[in-house]
Structures are given as C-alpha cells and as structure tokens.
Nucleic acid binder design. Structure first.
Length: 736
DNA sequence: TCTTTGTAGCTTTTT
DNA sequence: GCTACAAAGA
C-alpha cells in the first residue's frame, strides 16, 4: 500500500487519502489528475475500505474510461472489467439494459447516434408536414437535446410563443416515435435513466446503498442532467437513512471548453455549495510544461472573472521564451510553421512530439497543402470515425433491423441499399400506410406482402430469412452472414472505393469477434441480469463508441488538430496558428453569453499542451469563405506579458501592439479587470454605445478597461476600419 | 436510378 | 472557396 502513495506530492496525497467525505479537486492542466483519480480508487480498495462493487467511476470519453481501467488494473489485483467504470452514457446504458422493463423499454432497445437522430427527426418532420424553412431539422434536434439535457420533457417546457409551442409539440411527437420504435438517443439514455431512478424508489435505494464512492472525471464538463443524476445516486437531498455515497469530483473550471454543448462549469461551484465542501484541494504543481509556458497560461486565464482560482507552478526552469510569428498571409504563416517543423525534426525532435493546433478545422487546409508540398508526413485528427463510415452504418442497420424490426431509421437506411428497385414513391406510400396503421415501416411493409412479387415484399422476405438463418448463431457469425446475405459485400465488390469498404466490413467482423470474447468473459456485472443478448449489446457498443477519429496512419507524422481535440494531450513542441481577432477568439463567440471567456479557456488549454516550446502565430491576411480578410492580431496575444514572448519577425506594426500588451497586463496587475458589457466606462460611455471618431468614423464600443489616464475602449468601427483600441485621454469620441 | 446542377452555409462536438 | 446536400434532368 505505501508504494501507492510514493511519489505523490502533498496535495495529490491529500486527495488520494481523503476521508470518506465529499471532495472537490481542482486539478490544473498536467497536474496528475488521472493519476490521482485512479490511485484514489486503488487506495480505497487496497486499504479494504470498500470492495470493487462499491465504486462508481464516471468519465466523459471511452478513452478516459479505458485509461482508468488499465491503470487501475496495474495497481491492484481486481477484475476491472466487472467494475462500474465508464462514461455517463455507457453506465446509463448498462443500467437501462438491466432494468429495461422498469424503464419502459424493450430488451432490444437501440441507441441512435446524432446522425440517426437527425434522420429520425427529418422523417418525422416530413410526416407531420413541418415546414423545414420555419423548422429546420437541425434546430428541432437542438431544441430536443437541449431540453433533455436540462432534464425537461415536452410537457414540462414553458412555451410563451407559437413557434416554441410548435417545437414542443414536435418534441412530444418525437418522444412518441422513439418509444414506438424502441430507440433512444444519447440524451434520452441519461434522462431515461435519471427518471427511472427518481421514480423507482427500491431501485434507487439499491444503487444508493451499493455505490459508496462516486468518482467523476472532468467534472467541469457535466451538464445539468448529469449533475442531477450524480446527486440522485449520491442520495443528495434525501433524508439520510444511512450516509449516502461520497462524491469525489475532479475538474478544472479553466479547462471548460464545452459550455457551447450544454456543459455547465457552474456545477463546480454548485457542488461545493450543495455538498458543503469546505476545503477544495488544488493540484497546482504542473509536471508538463516549462515555466514560461505556465506563466503565460496563468496570466492569460487571470483575465477571466468568476474563476475558482488556481495558479500552476513547476519545479522545472523557465525554459525558452514563447515564440511569436506574424505572417503577411495565411500562406506565409503556413510556410513559416512548416519550415520550423522541418528544422525541429532535423534537430532530432520526434515528429509525433510536434503538434499544430488551430481553432477551426477550416484552417488546416493551407497547412496541409504546405505540408504536402514539402513532403512532411502529418496526421490529422477529426476525420471520420470507424462506426460512422457508411458501409459500417449500413451493415449495422441490417443488424439493427434483425434485433428490432420497429427501428424505422435502420429500415429507411437499408431498404434500398444496395438498390433493389424501391424508390421514393414506394417509400412515401409505405410511410403513409405505416402512419395510418400507427406501426413501423417494417410492419407496414410486411402487411403488404400480399403481393409476393413486389420489391418490398422481397426485402421483407430477405430480412426474415436473415433473421431465421442467424437465430442460433454466435455474434461474429451473425455479422458475417448478414454482410454476405444482405448484398453489401457483393455491392462493394464493384464500387470504385470498394476495396477499402470491404476491408472495413472485415474490420467490423473483427470487432464483433473481439467484443464477443470480452462479453463472454463477464464484461458485465455478474449481479445484473443481461437482457437483450450479445447482439443488442454489440449494437449499443457500436453506437456509444464510434471509435478513434480516423487519421492518416503513420508513426512519424506531425500532429494536426483543433484545440478541442487536443484537450488532454501533450507535446514537446506546440504551434498555435491563426491567432487573429475573429478567428481565435472566434467572432461568433462574441455574441454568446460568456463566449469570450470560453474562447480564453480554449486558448489556455492550447497553451498548456506544450511541454518545452510554444509558437504563437498569426497572419495579416487570410483567405476565409473565399474572401481575403484582414485580421488584427488576437487580443489573447496582447494579454500575455511581453517579457515571456520573443517576436521572431519584428514587424513595425507590432510596436504599437506591444505597448498595448504591456498596458493591458499592467491594468490587470492593478486589479482593474476589463469591463463587462453594459457597464459604464467613463464620461457617459458604455459598452454597446455608438460613437463617432474624427478619423475613423462611426463605430460601437465593444469593450473598455483601465481608469483615469489609462482608460481606453475598444471600438468596432464601421466597414473598412474595424476594431481599434483608443485611449480616452487622446481620442475624442462623440457619443451618438 | 443515376448523374448533373444548383444553392446554402461556414466554430468547436467527449456520448 | 469548398463542401454537402437537395432538387431537377438523362
């Protein structure tokens, strides 16, 4: 046991050996968060405080869950497979499979991924004759998901306008359709599970009594519903029959970059208050980056108000200054980056230790072009995932149809693929008759089988035959038989990109084989009934785990990805490109509530990915949406202390920018934070106000900061001028 | 049924 | 400027 705690620093050790009480661990970037989490579990087990069945560990990604399992397996001799370690969705799936009857779901219920959900919504919108101009399917999807993530059913939504009322009606219809089809979307998985536990007291008490320790990773990324789910399991707010579970939450509010998806970093503060956590443990020693890089990150993030507060430090030296490059154009910037990379590689830096991060995917193109031109291998994250490939989705749809004929999404996907002469007209007619009979497309098709010669009848026969032939087969053979029997393999034999797709289908077969082995070796809790069988479990696995983002393989490649994709990773050398106003921070963020703060956290995440060397680059012009845009350097650059930076190409224009940068940093040091929108700055000027300038024309005040002689405002001037910082002492601004 | 042509949109996206 | 998806022609 003592060796578990060896090499832990004092706060880490305090976290690991925290008494049986709720805990909030503020874990900075690179502070050994995962290690603390897994060691905590290992410590609880090996000190004999609880058994493995009493642990519930929740993560956001399958990768994180696997990482935790494998690390834990290396620390203590337990069957980690049988433990409840998984993603929110994975664990909810497990619970719902075990208690599907109580949850009102069929044993074979299927999980819709986001693409399935969208196609389901499109189908319904068409059936209900919803105007797709007034109600774009994407909006409906967002409306439904956002509400589910807040824990709201259609009946619980307050609709004050007719548009919202229609959306609510649609939501209700969608719920009905899913229920009839026996399918659940991602958000439903959580909401259904939450409602099940809330409604079913014996079940709730069973799990509350069972899980003595609930550990949550990346707590800042939880949404309302996930937090409520945790509270429910922890028995929070209920009369204490016996002491509820201990919630051990690890997170970093500064790395919350998914608020746009519904994550609520405010949950951290809520947790602290609601669970009465008097002492927050801070893990602030960083084992990743050199001092200058950390200092830059620390200074940058201090511009955000409402932080829980944290300052990273390292035992390592300051290291190199942060390199700043200004290109004339995006191409110039790309050339610089690629040249620099080439030099680094020549100097012996492994290409895999070099990462290029950008705010948006569109930025990768110029860089890729340049990388291809000089012949530098690269690996780009963000492509298709394995289970998202069309051939895989088709094969899975056939399997889904075998498992659950009511799954209309699966039916619609494969009814005419490979083409078998069932066109739009037949489908429309089928839709209509299914709607009339209030049944699934498959049932409607089956009921039309009076005419055995029709294409539709042949399709129904095909599915029936497949089902009958595979009924008693083990999973891999089912998959093999279906791929063969449905004609997919035959179809791709003649396609131009057929070989790749066939290889992927083989890979699916392989995945089924691996899955079957794991499934057989008691992946699931022995104490739970396993309903639905291996096929349903495999299909759920395919929906919940879409596989690694496909990337150009090749071991010796530099890594390209968005900042979001880089979260949790680290590299010796990091390039952050496109640091321009409007791009990073992104212009759309300005209109969102707390948008700029999230952008800043994103920048914080980007900076803290670097171990030894960090490059920040921007370009004066950039081709965006087919037009040349003139970008100002990112305000984030100005928020970094000049002393940490080394400008690689001192362009004249930057002298002013640098002076400005010092000014802003000085203002921050004095404690005068940038103004919030709406607040008055000086002399009756406030953010959002229109003003006139003798030289620049008219514009709107976007931000303001400082006071007295140093008070200045950021004005967004009309058309050609754009954003400018102006010192109020000198600039004569006329309020309009 | 497959191909062509047109038009919208375009930030990030763990499950 | 490019892509993705939808509606119209062969």
């Amino acid at each position: 046991m003592p060796d578990l705690l060896a090499d832990l620093n004092p706060p880490q050790r305090a976290a690991v050996t925290w008494p049986t009480r709720h805990a909030l661990i503020l874990a900075g970037a690179g502070s050994g968060k995962t290690r603390v989490l897994t060691t905590r579990i290992a410590w609880l087990l090996s000190t004999g405080q609880v058994g493995p069945q009493a642990i519930l560990a929740v993560t956001f990604t399958n990768k994180a869950a696997r990482e935790m399992q494998s690390r834990l397996a290396a620390m203590v001799p337990v069957n980690v497979r049988g433990m409840w370690i998984g993603t929110f969705h994975g664990l909810c799936n497990r619970l719902l499979r075990a208690h599907h009857r109580e949850a009102g779901l069929p044993a074979q219920f299927q999980i819709l991924d986001i693409a399935d959900q969208l196609s389901s919504i499109k189908r319904l919108a068409k059936n209900l004759a919803f105007d797709d101009q007034k109600f774009p399917p994407q909006d409906l999807l967002h409306f439904i998901n956002a509400n589910k993530e807040r824990g709201l059913r259609a009946a619980q939504i307050d609709a004050y306008d007719s548009l919202t009322r229609r959306r609510v009606e649609f939501y209700a219809e969608y719920e009905r359709q899913c229920q009839r089809e026996g399918v659940v979307d991602f958000a439903e998985l959580l909401l259904r599970c939450f409602e099940l536990l809330q409604r079913n007291q014996p079940l709730r008490e069973h799990y509350q009594a069972r899980f003595r320790h609930i550990l949550v990773d990346e707590f800042q990324d939880t949404n309302r519903l996930q937090y409520d789910w945790l509270k429910l399991l922890a028995g929070h707010g209920e009369p204490p029959r016996e002491p509820g579970a201990c919630l051990f939450a690890v997170g970093d509010d500064d790395q919350s970059i998914y608020a746009f998806r519904g994550a609520d970093p405010g949950n951290m503060g809520d947790l602290q208050r609601e669970f009465v956590i008097e002492e927050v443990i801070r893990l602030e020693q960083n084992y990743r980056s050199h001092g200058n890089i950390l200092d830059a990150a620390n200074v940058l993030i201090r511009w955000n108000p409402r932080r829980l507060g944290k300052n990273l430090w390292t035992a390592e030296g300051a290291g190199e200054p942060i390199r700043v490059f200004e290109g004339y154009s995006d191409l110039d910037e790309a050339r610089f980056i690629v040249e620099e990379m080439t030099e680094l590689i020549d100097d012996g830096v492994p290409p895999t230790q070099i990462a290029l991060l950008y705010r948006s995917n569109a930025q990768s193109r110029v860089l890729e072009h340049e990388l291809v031109r000089v012949g530098l291998p690269y690996r780009i994250y963000g492509g298709l995932r394995f289970y998202d490939r069309q051939e895989i989705k088709h094969a899975l749809a056939y399997l889904r149809l075998l498992a659950n004929p009511d799954d209309d999404t699966a039916f619609a996907r494969v009814v005419n693929f490979p083409t078998r002469g069932i066109g739009v007209r037949s489908i429309d007619a089928l839709q209509e008759s299914a709607r009339r009979l209030n049944t699934s497309l498959y049932n409607a098709a089956a009921s039309l089988t009076g005419k055995p010669g029709t294409a539709l009848a042949r399709f129904v026969r095909l599915i029936e035959t497949l089902r009958a032939d595979t009924e008693r087969l083990p999973l891999p053979e089912i998959v093999d038989h279906v791929i063969e029997g449905c004609g997919l393999r035959q179809h791709y034999l003649t396609e131009k990109d057929g070989p790749d797709r066939l290889a992927n289908l083989d890979e699916l077969l392989n995945a089924a084989t691996v899955f079957t082995e794991e499934y057989a070796s008691a992946v699931y809790d022995a104490a739970l009934p396993v309903d639905g069988g291996p096929l349903a479990a495999f299909l759920a696995h395919a929906s919940l785990e879409s596989g690694e983002r496909q990337a150009g393989e090749g071991q010796e490649a530099v890594q390209l990805m968005t900042v979001h994709a880089a979260k949790g990773l680290e590299f010796d050398v990091v390039f952050i490109g496109g640091l321009e106003q409007g791009l990073f921070p992104h212009e759309n963020a300005a209109s969102e509530r707390d948008g700029l703060e999230e952008e800043r956290r994103l920048m914080y995440v980007a900076i803290t990915r670097a171990r030894r060397r960090l490059y920040l680059s921007h370009a004066q012009t950039r081709l965006l949406h087919g037009q040349t845009r003139y970008g100002l350097r990112s305000s984030f650059l100005d928020e970094l202390p000049k002393t940490l930076l080394r400008q690689l190409n001192p362009a004249v224009a930057n002298v002013a920018a640098f002076a400005r940068s010092d000014h802003r940093v000085a203002a921050l040091a004095r404690g005068s934070a940038p103004s919030d929108p709406g607040s008055a700055i000086a002399d009756g000027l406030c953010v959002g106000q229109r003003v006139r300038h003798t030289r620049f024309g008219d514009g709107v005040i976007v931000a303001g900061e400082g006071n007295g002689r140093e008070a200045r405002v950021l004005v967004n001037f009309d058309r050609p001028v754009g954003e400018k910082w102006l010192l109020l002492e000198y600039a004569r601004l006329l309020p309009l």
